[in-house]
Amino acid sequence: MQLPVLLDKLSEFLMVEQGGLELYRVVASRCTDPALTQRYEAFGQETAIHRQVLVNLIQRLGGDPNYVSPTARLAQVKAAGLLQGDLVVDGLSQQELEANDLENVLLAETKDHADWHLLQQLAQQVDDPTVKQALQEVVDQVEDEEDTHLSWARDTLSQLALKLVTQGPAPAPERWQQVLTGPVPPIEQIHPAPIEQGLLEPARLSPWQETPVVRALRSG
């Protein structure tokens, strides 16, 4: 077994738990569904414990929990990326925002679950009895909870999306118009004295074109 590789991976997994904790903190603070909020808070607490479990494991294997491996940095960037989405994109309804939060939980928990699945497989395959024992103990402690986190996120997101599609509410189309320049509503509705005279030929072009996807499909 390559212990340095394992320690690099554990640093990454620790960062994933840290990212999960931060994600739960944010989504719980802005969720308007009390049942979901309760779940986020509970999972956040469990994630904090998983973080501690990994710190203990790293120390037990002779590693340093202060060490940040390159892939841990990658995990950190990805976790921040999940939370960055709604800093960059506005015009979401409250329902869309909360569904996006839950989707981010699903993405984060999918990775988290894969990490613990790997540790479980390692515990079965590794030769070193000390490492085997240490891995088995943490997997026994955490893996069931990770299973629950993932299946809950996947099932709840499906339910939420199904409910939105079948029952609504449909968000007002104006939500998008509040952030985009055009072409609707017409300028006359938002400007008291728009200029129509003295314009040149390019100003007569339609202000919107087909999306890059449609254009790419058209060009084959």
Binding site: T181, G182, P194, I195, G198, L199, L200, E201, A203
Partner: peptide
């Protein structure tokens, strides 16, 4: 640029 601009909001 305003005289050439196709997007009325940007033009204004």
């Amino acid at each position: 640029l305003a005289r050439n601009e196709p997007d009325a909001y940007v033009r204004e």
